[in-house]
Amino acid sequence: MKLSWLISRLSPTAAAVAVLTCAVQAAHAQCISVPDQGKLLLTGGVIEVDGAGGGGLVPWAMITGYGTRDSVGANAHETFVNTSDFRLNSYGAAVGLLDRVELSFNRHDLTITANGGGLPLNGVRIGQDIFGLKVKIIGDIVYDQGSAVPEISLGLQYKSSNGIRGGVFGSGIKPTDLGAKANDGTDFYVAFSKLLLAESLFVNGTIRATKANEFGLLGFGGDRKDGYRPEFEGSVGYLVNRKVAIGGEVRTKPHNLTLDNEKAAWDLFVAWAPIKTVSVVAAYLNLGKILDGPAGYSSTQQGPYVSLQVGF
């Protein structure tokens, strides 16, 4: 598990964050070095597949962790996705500062598995690193119950390819070798989140400007299109009780590469937070058809999504 590795690095990170927060707060003549874990259970969201605070596929407006505006929060997570022909391992860590700024690092390791049986790309591995920044602009999902104003945040995710290697590609090629216009790229998004507490209902809408092919794993831009396009990402959740939420999400994606008939992704999830330091998400994930055509992976890529998160 990479999770234990992440946790071992989270403590010094948190200490550094606390010192940094102190510097920011010096003007207030106080210095917060202890995480307060002051938010209500689940109200910080979990970590989405690109490493930001959110749901499973979609970044939300909330700043990750349980730190209030007086404190800090942080999370490490590891996520496994296993579809018909692909296995994705996503892991990373994120910190929330003063319930205002979120910094995240996330890595994707994707392996094309033998599930499809003897196809040429079996054994190929694709990886990328994702650096995220999110800033809350306005609102609070818990306190703003009397108004229609959502919590709104702006974010970006810089994604850097770790190449495509293994199997037929041996020591490796780059996304540009498959027709992408760039190996690295940056997504920009605005997220609107609203908790309708009286209805025990959570809704989120995120608009993302992106050129990413398959979350960035196949690079940015392509032969069909090479420009930023607005894509929509939505989430709906229902609070079953204080520890469990269920819901669904959808995330539209560009179709830039001829060789990849890229489709929207969607999921149905159950999130469980037995205590503030641990949460588990189990989901059914559907990525549509990937690499339809020449590569032969024509079936819909669907399967389980499981994510474990620890933090404060």
């Binding site: 307060d36 874990q37 002051g38 938010k39 209500l40 209030t68 505006r69 007086d70």
Partner: peptide, 8 residues
């Protein structure tokens, strides 16, 4: 009263 106390 801060947010953590309110939420507590």
């Amino acid at each position: 009263v801060n947010d953590a106390q309110f939420n507590a």
